[in-house]
Write a protein that binds this DNA or RNA. Structure first.
Lengths: 111, 111
DNA sequence: AACATAACTTACGAATGGTAAGTTTATAAA
DNA sequence: TTTATAAACTTACCATTCGTAAGTTATGTT
């Protein structure tokens, strides 16, 4: 295991080292948003409904952060209505193993 | 994958479901503290020195949270001086796979 | 024309984190 | 033997992040 937590130089994404990555995916509701998008693209309202307890404000904020990190893409649907769709990018999808590791850890530690 | 994020009932630990677990290990400096303890027990001052940028206040707070979750144990060393030692419990050690998954994700996504 | 829904945005008090300085007990140095 | 240094915290205070609720804009429905 190598953890270059001093590195903060010219990297494109926040999540380019362990320190920043774990705190990024651990921000409030972030894990739930990522998890929720794992089974396919969803609209804002679908996410809001599915993730019990999140507010519009935080959902917007987390989605924008995910977009900035290129873990999620945003598409405006062209059926002449004001609808959007959020989807995990390949980079975002590859977080699946991290999520699975966390779920495995929880299962393992149930008394 | 099953994520029971509605569950908040009678569980002993905060980290008994995905939602709480990911936000717990993602709190500020938490990942670094866990990482730092992965290679063996350490004293407060050793952790403070090793984890570049953390303050005494936050280190104390994170360690206490880890102890409450039974991921870390605290031992007062008996050489008649006021020294303590923090070590990962077995439960804490089993987080190694999560950390490795995050490190793998970062490596995988380097351009 | 009036109301509803989607996808935000704004405002504001509460919780969490950052920075720095202060405590307490214990060994080390003068 | 007083003086200083170090370990392991605590306390105080300001800044950032979060939670709650209400407002906005554009389309869709009755």
């Amino acid at each position: 295991m190598d953890c270059n937590h001093k590195l903060k130089t010219d990297s494109k994404h926040i999540c380019s080292n362990y320190h920043e990555a774990i705190e990024f995916i651990g921000r409030r509701w972030m894990g739930m948003v990522i998890y929720s998008l794992m089974d396919g693209p969803k609209r804002f309202s679908e996410l809001a409904e599915e993730i019990n307890g999140i507010s519009d404000r935080l959902l917007t904020e987390r989605l924008n952060e995910l977009i900035k990190e290129e873990l999620v893409s945003k598409t405006f649907l062209e059926d002449s209505s004001k609808k959007v769709e959020y989807a995990l990018t390949e980079r975002g999808m590859s977080l699946k193993k991290v999520i699975e590791a966390i779920l495995a850890w929880i299962a393992e530690n149930e008394k």
